[in-house]
Amino acid sequence: MNQLVFSQILDGLGLAYRIASNGRTAVEMHRTLKPRLILMDVSMPEMNGLEAAAAIRRAEVGMGTRTPIIGVTAHALKDDREMCIEAGMDDYLSKPVSPNKLAAKINAWIGSDAVALSA
């Protein structure tokens, strides 16, 4: 269900994207696709989002790049945000996610020309 919601929002924002079905796939997609930004669900099978973010950060050591990672979770507690940051994520977004909240986060990390805020 979350993948469908995010797909609809990202389509509406006119962004190109790929969806990983689990954390291991997310790490592999980072390696092969080199995305400009990652929206990382904290609760994923096989390898959760915290583990996947940490693996991506380890892989980036020595590469001279750092892909912004925005953690997405249903939890909105202060500790949840801190766990995301400690795992190597750059920002945090709690569910439910609105198109405007998501667009604002994307703009903050990859520039205002990436997506126009929707009405």
Results as ranks from 00 to 15, higher is better:
97 V>H: 12
46 E>M: 04
92 Y>H: 13
37 L>D: 03
2 N>G: 03
66 R>P: 06
11 D>F: 05
37 L>R: 02
90 D>F: 03
7 S>N: 12
14 G>V: 14
108 A>C: 09
22 N>F: 00
80 D>E: 15
117 L>G: 01
66 R>M: 05
110 I>M: 08
38 I>P: 01
63 M>I: 14
43 S>W: 13
71 G>A: 15
16 A>S: 09
61 V>H: 05
105 K>W: 13
91 D>S: 14
69 I>G: 04
87 A>P: 12
74 A>D: 09
68 P>V: 01
48 N>K: 12
6 F>A: 03
70 I>Y: 02
64 G>P: 02
43 S>M: 15
16 A>Y: 08
87 A>D: 00
59 A>Y: 09
23 G>E: 03
5 V>A: 02
80 D>H: 02
20 A>N: 12
31 R>C: 13
101 K>E: 14
28 E>G: 03
64 G>W: 14
82 E>C: 05
3 Q>L: 10
12 G>Y: 10
94 S>M: 03
5 V>S: 07
64 G>K: 09
118 S>D: 14
39 L>E: 07
60 E>L: 12
33 L>V: 09
25 T>Y: 00
95 K>A: 13
74 A>V: 03
95 K>E: 14
80 D>W: 02
69 I>C: 08
103 A>G: 12
56 I>D: 00
76 A>E: 08
21 S>N: 14
104 A>D: 14
98 S>E: 08
105 K>M: 11
2 N>S: 13
97 V>I: 15
83 M>I: 13
85 I>S: 02
23 G>Q: 01
67 T>G: 00
35 P>I: 01
64 G>L: 15
74 A>H: 05
76 A>K: 08
83 M>P: 04
55 A>E: 11
36 R>T: 07
28 E>L: 07
6 F>G: 00
59 A>P: 06
78 K>T: 10
81 R>F: 04
61 V>N: 10
93 L>H: 06
114 A>P: 05
88 G>P: 03
50 L>E: 08
118 S>M: 12
55 A>D: 03
9 I>F: 08
26 A>P: 04
41 D>E: 08
78 K>Y: 05
3 Q>M: 12
55 A>Y: 01
49 G>N: 02
116 A>F: 00
50 L>T: 06
57 R>M: 12
115 V>W: 02
115 V>I: 15
119 A>Q: 14
103 A>D: 11
17 Y>R: 12
67 T>Q: 12
56 I>C: 05
114 A>V: 08
85 I>V: 15
105 K>A: 06
86 E>S: 06
36 R>W: 06
57 R>G: 05
26 A>Q: 11
15 L>T: 04
100 N>D: 15
89 M>F: 04
69 I>R: 01
10 L>P: 07
75 H>E: 13
41 D>W: 04
99 P>R: 15
84 C>A: 09
99 P>I: 05
68 P>H: 06
31 R>P: 06
48 N>S: 07
37 L>P: 08
14 G>A: 09
107 N>E: 12
15 L>K: 07
90 D>I: 08
61 V>P: 03
115 V>F: 00
117 L>I: 09
16 A>D: 13
32 T>W: 05
26 A>E: 04
5 V>C: 01
109 W>E: 03
112 S>R: 06
21 S>M: 13
9 I>N: 02
63 M>N: 05
82 E>R: 12
32 T>L: 10
